[in-house]
Design a protein around this nucleic acid. Structure first.
Length: 260
DNA sequence: ATTGTGGCCTGCCCGC
DNA sequence: TGCGGGCAGGCCACAA
């Protein structure tokens, strides 16, 4: 599903859409529009405008326009971005293999004939104008060791829940978090504030490494833990049967032997 | 304020 | 072969 690496790929693809005049907008699914946005408002506002910058904070893709409005795109767990018929990601975990234009929830047509579209089978994503960027924490790709320590310190919430709290750290979803904690040898259910200094530094190191490695491999579903889980239920590191639990309200896989 | 829970949405997989 | 229940998780509203 779209976590930070996928949305970063979407952002790079969206660069193709910059500077092109918007000739038409289709918002066929009013439910997909968030924060009170209405289809007629989306259409009338964006028609004639142009995107001038692409940005990303965590899993939120931001497209600045030349009229001052910022278009915020969220992709939920099955949303994909296509520009000029090019998909940033061909197939998405959990999203199904088929392509279907009836899943296009938001389409921007350019005067030159191309288009930008959000294709989301399960409709868990959304489009908003001027999303509140201050509600998102520091981006997981940019977080410093001291920032990570600060957001963990003093909290009794499970480590996994804290790392997935988008208001504190933006970009990690279920798969990336499980993979990072598995690599760092940390129990997802540990109280966040219980980590020692060395453990926090270890977590930071593995967070960075996991993000860059999985991005290079092709996405948040390419982690060693995730791949192993689909084959069997044994830890790829030490062969122990993996634990399957609910932590922070999410299905969680971890190794009882090397994660503490 | 912080932490926890349930519901939204729908394609797909499994068992009958 | 068809059917139905359960599952997946990002995000938000709401409860404690």
């Amino acid at each position: 599903m779209p976590e930070l690496p996928e949305v970063e790929t979407y952002r790079a693809l969206a660069t193709r859409a910059l500077g092109r005049t918007i000739a038409a907008v289709e918002a066929p699914d009013a439910w997909f529009l968030k924060a009170g946005l209405r289809p007629d408002v989306v259409v009338s506002t964006l028609t004639g405008a142009r995107f001038v910058a692409d940005r990303r904070i965590g899993k939120l893709l931001l497209l600045d326009t030349d009229i001052g409005v910022v278009v915020g795109l969220r992709f939920g767990m099955t949303g994909r971005l296509l520009v000029d018929g090019i998909a940033a990601i061909a197939r998405l975990e959990y999203a199904g293999a088929r392509d279907n234009t009836t899943w296009d929830r938001f389409v921007v047509r350019f005067a030159d004939g191309g288009d930008l579209r959000v294709r989301d089978p399960r409709r868990l994503g959304g489009v908003a104008f001027d999303p509140d960027e201050s509600r998102l924490g520091v981006d997981a790709l940019a977080v410093t060791p001291s920032q990570l320590s600060a957001l963990l310190r003093g909290s009794t919430a499970p480590l996994k829940a804290r790392l997935m709290d988008q208001t504190r750290l933006a970009g990690l979803g279920n798969l990336l978090t499980d993979e990072t904690l598995w690599r760092a040898g940390l129990d997802p259910a540990r109280p966040s504030g219980s980590l020692s200094g060395p453990e926090r530094r270890r977590l930071h190191r593995h967070l960075r490494r996991t993000l860059t490695e999985l991005s290079a491999r092709g996405g948040s579903h390419t982690g060693d833990l995730h791949i192993a889980r689909s084959r069997g239920a044994c830890c790829p590191a030490d062969g122990a049967p993996l634990d399957r639990r609910t932590v922070g309200g999410r299905t969680t896989y971890s190794c009882p032997v090397h994660q503490h």
